[in-house]
């Protein structure tokens, strides 16, 4: 690969970044194959995708509600709800500890229930969903990621919980840094 180091602002951000916070705690946890940690290993990618959806859904629903709320109230309110669920899931998955683990399970379960309910409702009564919302048609506008994501999330949470138990260390122990 070419090493003509491009002088972009991305590079300073690289070094400034890990000094901040979650990244520094993640380092040692990775070395120890972190027990209760849901943000390590493949979970890190999961948090990334959740974060993308959180940002996308939030900004989209803010734009929708502030500019054309009367166009499709139900769909836009559901989008806003979805946005909140994504934010909660992202934070909970990124944080260590049993309490956050429980929050993450609840958020992913809510998300799964929501995407199935809204998906079904939008198929049955498409007039109520004139505009594509995150969860309408099971997230078909988003490559069906909204319906796959909570399943992956719940699977990962289950696996990381059982790994924590095997490590003989109750996840609760590492609560709140």
């Amino acid at each position: 690969m070419d090493k003509t180091t491009p002088a972009t602002p991305a590079t300073p951000a690289v070094h400034a970044g890990p000094a901040v916070s979650p990244a520094t705690e993640a380092g040692p946890a990775q070395r120890g194959r972190g027990g209760s940690r849901t943000a390590g290993g493949p979970g890190r990618i999961l948090v990334t995708v959740y974060a993308i959806f959180a940002v996308a859904a939030c900004s989209r629903s803010i734009v929708q509600i502030s500019t054309e709320f009367d166009h499709a109230r139900v769909a836009y309110l559901l989008s806003a709800f979805a946005a909140v669920v994504y934010v909660v899931a992202t934070v909970a998955l990124a944080r260590p500890g049993a309490a956050w683990h429980r929050v993450a399970v609840a958020a992913c379960a809510t998300e799964l229930a929501g995407v199935l309910a809204v998906g079904t409702a939008s198929v049955v009564d498409s007039a109520a969903f004139p505009d594509q919302a995150v969860w309408s048609n099971y997230g078909s506008g988003y490559l069906f990621i909204p319906v796959i994501l909570p399943v992956l999330g719940l699977t990962w949470l289950r696996r990381s919980a059982s790994r924590a138990r095997v490590a003989g260390r109750p996840a609760r122990e590492s609560d709140n840094p």
Binding site: A10, G17, A26, Q30, R44, I45, T48, A51, I52
Partner: peptide
């Protein structure tokens, strides 16, 4: 997106960090 993605990927110095950057 990319600065944040790079920051998050550097928190995990394993293959999964590369995966994070790929998703970003």
């Amino acid at each position: 997106a990319l600065p944040v993605g790079v920051w998050w990927s550097l928190g995990d110095r394993s293959r999964w960090g590369s995966g994070v950057l790929g998703v970003a």
